[in-house]
C-alpha cells in the first residue's frame, strides 16, 4: 500500500532522514519507535509532503508521490493526524470534518454522521467550536477528520499525547479494528509503548534519522529488547 525506498530529507543542509526504506501492507498497523528527536515526526511529515527537500521513491498504492505538494498527497489517500492534533479551534466540529472532505480526490467521502459514528461523544458537539472540546475529544475529532475521506494510509503522530488513559485504550482498539475491517494501513508514532504494542503488528525502530531495526510487535515485549533500542 505504501512503499518507501531510500527516502532522504533535510532541513537546509542538515540531513534529518537517511536512506529510510520500508513498506506498509493493507490492513497492517506498524509502530515507529525511537527516542525523542530521532526523526519520527520528520518521517511522517516527509511522507505527507510537508518537507520540501526530500529525495527517494515513495509510492502510495502504486502511484509515485514524487515531489507532489501535501494537498495532492492527501487527495491520493494519505492522511496525517499531526502531533498536537491540528484542530481548527475557531471552526465548529462539523466544519472541521467538512474541511477534511477536501482530501476525497477520486474517492467518495463519508457523511459526517458516518465519520463520527465511532465517537458518540462528538455527536452532541457538532455545532460547537472545536476549541471547547477536551484533549481526548479533540484527538477523536482529528481521527474522524482524517477518516472522512476513507484514506488508504493513515499516519498517526502521538495520538495518546494529552489524552486520558481510558480514551487512549479506546483509540488503540479503534485503530486496530479499523485497520482490520477497512484494510487501512497505519503508521503509528507513539511514546506510549503499551499502546504501540497493543495495536501494532510490526515495529520499526529509528535512530538518528535511520531505520535500524524492524520486527514483530511481540519481540518488543521483552525488556532487554526495549532497553537496547529505546533505553527504556
Amino acid at each position: 500500500m505504501l512503499s518507501v525506498e531510500t527516502l532522504n530529507a533535510s532541513y537546509g543542509t542538515v540531513p534529518v532522514l537517511e536512506d529510510v526504506s520500508f513498506a506498509l501492507e493493507p490492513g497492517e498497523v506498524v509502530a515507529l519507535l525511537g527516542r525523542n528527536g530521532v526523526g519520527k515526526t520528520t518521517l511522517l511529515r516527509a511522507l505527507m509532503g510537508l518537507i520540501p527537500s526530500r529525495e527517494g521513491k515513495v509510492h502510495l498504492d502504486g502511484t509515485s508521490i514524487g515531489s507532489a505538494p501535501a494537498h495532492a498527497i492527501a487527495r491520493l489517500g494519505m492522511a496525517l493526524v499531526p502531533q498536537g492534533r491540528g484542530i481548527l479551534g475557531k471552526l465548529s466540529v462539523a466544519d472541521n470534518i467538512r474541511a477534511g472532505t477536501r482530501a476525497a480526490g477520486a474517492r467518495e467521502a463519508l457523511s459526517i454522521d458516518d465519520a463520527i459514528a465511532p465517537f458518540p461523544m462528538l455527536k452532541e458537539k457538532l455545532a460547537e467550536r472545536a476549541v471547547t472540546l477536551s484533549g481526548g475529544q479533540q484527538q477523536q475529532l482529528a481521527i474522524a477528520r482524517a477518516l472522512v475521506c476513507r484514506p488508504k494510509v493513515m499516519l498517526l503522530d502521538e495520538p495518546s499525547e494529552g489524552v486520558q488513559p481510558n480514551i487512549v485504550t479506546e483509540i488503540g482498539k479503534l485503530i486496530r479494528e479499523l485497520s482490520d475491517r477497512t484494510k487501512l494501513a497505519v503508521l503509528l508514532v507513539e511514546q506510549n509503548i503499551g499502546l504501540a504494542l497493543a495495536t501494532a503488528d510490526r515495529c520499526l525502530v529509528m535512530e538518528k534519522g535511520r531505520l535500524v531495526h524492524a520486527g514483530p510487535a511481540d519481540e518488543f515485549r521483552n525488556d532487554a529488547v526495549l532497553k537496547r533500542y529505546l533505553a527504556l
Binding site: L50, H71, L88, D95
Partner: peptide, 20 residues
Amino acid sequence: LDLRTVIQNREVAEILGIDT
C-alpha cells in the same frame, strides 16, 4: 470554509487536501 481553514492553519489545510 476552505479560506477559513487556510487562514487558521495553512499547514493543516494542506494536510486536509486544500490547495492553499
